Amino acid sequence: MRVKSACLTGIKEIEVRERELIPKNDDVLVKTHAAGICGTDKNLYNGVIPPTGGLNGEIRTSFEYPYYFGHEGGGTVVEVGRNVRQFKAGDKVMAFGWVETYSDYFIATEDNLELVPDGLDMDLASLGEPIICAVFSGLCSKVQLGDTVVVVGMGFAGQVFAQIAKKKGAFQVIGIDVVDGKLELAKSLGLDHAVNSARTDPLTAILKLTGGQGADVMVEVAGTAEAVQLCNDAVKHNGVLVFYSWITEDIALNISRWHDNSLEIVNTGLVHHGILQRRIWVPQALRPVLQGMIQIAPLITHTYALAEMDKAMQTANEDSAAIKVLVR
C-alpha cells in the first residue's frame, strides 16, 4: 500500500515522501494515531548516530540517507500476517522499537508492539514507550520514604520521574534545568525546589538544601557530561546514582567517589533490558497513569500534522520550552 512517511535526507534535513509498504507474514500493519519525538530522534536529526557493531546493537538497520525513522507511536491494527498470533485487526497498540512511526501507517512485528489497556487515551498510548520507560525508571530508582531526590533535566522523563519520587515518599524533590518554564511546570506538578543552573550553581544549591550532606538519590536525565558529573558530585555518601539518558558520545568523568563513597549505580533503561522484561513491566508502569497519579497530558507542549514534520522536528530540537512534541 502507498503511505506517506517522514525521512531524514541529510543533517537537519527532513522530507515527507510517499512510499510503498508491503507487510509480510510476520508483520502487523498499524494505522498511526500519533507519534512522539524522542531525544534519540533529535540526535539522528543532528547527525549524531548511535554506535553500532560489537555489543552495540540498538540500531538494527544500517544508517543511510534517506532514513525513515520514529519509534514512539501508537495506533490501530489494520491487518496482520498469517503467522501473527498476538494481535488482530481493530486492536489498539503501542510501538516499541525502530518501526518508523513517522508515517500514516507503519509495520511492526509482534515483539515491537504492546496492547493499549482499556481506559488509556490514545494520545497517551502513542507515548506509551516513553511513559513506560520513565515510570519504570522512577519505580526502580530505589527512592525511599524521607529521601532527598535531585532530578537533573526536567524534560519529559525528568518531569515523570519527579512526580513518582514525590509519590514514593521523598521528603524533598529538587529539579535542575536551564529553562524556567520547565521548572515552573514541574513545581505545578509537585516539585519542591527548582534550581535554574544557568543562574545558580546547582552543586551549591543542592548542598545548601541538604545541610551539606548531598542528595540520597541523584537522577541523570539531561544527557550531558555536565549532568553526569553533577550527579556524581552531589550524591551523599552511600547514595544512589540513577542513570536514564542514552549518551552516545564519549564523556570524561571523575568516578573516584564511586569507590571511595560506596555509591550505588542504577541503570533504569527498561527497553534495553529486553522484550520479556518489558512485557512484565508494561501493565505495572501504566497503572499509576491510568489511576491518575502521574500527570502526562500537561507534558505534551506541541502538536503537529505529519505534513509539518520538518517544523515539528525544528521545534523539538530548538525550542527550549518544548517537552514532548506529538506528530499526528
Rank of each mutant, 00 (worst) to 15 (best):
M1H: 06
R2T: 10
L8W: 03
G10L: 11
I14Q: 08
R19K: 11
L29F: 05
V30M: 06
V30A: 02
V30Q: 04
K31F: 04
G36R: 02
C38Y: 03
G39W: 00
G39F: 09
T40N: 13
K42C: 05
K42F: 01
L44T: 09
G47Q: 04
G47H: 09
V48S: 07
P51W: 13
G53Y: 09
G57R: 13
G57E: 13
E58N: 08
E58R: 14
T61F: 12
E64N: 09
E64Q: 15
T76P: 02
V77I: 13
V77Y: 11
V77R: 01
V78Q: 13
V80E: 03
R82S: 12
V84N: 07
V84M: 11
R85G: 00
R85E: 11
R85D: 06
Q86D: 07
F87P: 00
K88Q: 14
D91K: 02
F96Y: 10
G97P: 12
T101I: 12
Y102P: 05
Y102A: 03
S103C: 14
F106Y: 15
I107N: 02
T109D: 08
N112A: 04
L113M: 15
L113F: 06
P117L: 14
D118Y: 02
G119P: 07
L120R: 04
L120Q: 05
M122T: 09
L124I: 12
A125F: 07
S126R: 07
G128P: 10
G128F: 08
E129F: 07
I132N: 07
I132K: 03
A134R: 01
A134Y: 01
G138I: 04
Q144F: 09
T148E: 10
T148P: 01
V149T: 10
G153P: 00
Q159Y: 02
Q159K: 04
Q163H: 06
I164C: 07
I164R: 03
K167T: 04
G169K: 13
A170E: 12
A170L: 15
V178E: 05
A186C: 11
K187C: 08
S188H: 02
L189P: 01
L189I: 11
L189Y: 05
D192H: 06
H193F: 12
H193T: 07
A194G: 08
A194D: 10
A198F: 08
P202I: 10
I206T: 05
L207K: 11
L207R: 08
D216L: 00
M218S: 11
V221Y: 00
A222F: 02
G223P: 05
Q229I: 01
Q229M: 06
Q229V: 11
A234D: 10
K236A: 12
G239N: 01
V242H: 02
F243C: 10
Y244C: 09
S245R: 00
W246T: 02
I247M: 10
T248S: 14
D250R: 15
A252G: 06
A252P: 03
N254A: 14
I255M: 13
I255D: 13
H259C: 09
N261D: 10
I265D: 00
H273I: 06
L276A: 12
W281A: 05
Q284R: 15
A285N: 08
R287P: 04
L290D: 06
I296K: 03
T301M: 08
M309F: 13
M313G: 03
A316I: 08
N317R: 12
E318I: 10
E318D: 15
A322N: 03
V325H: 07
V325A: 11
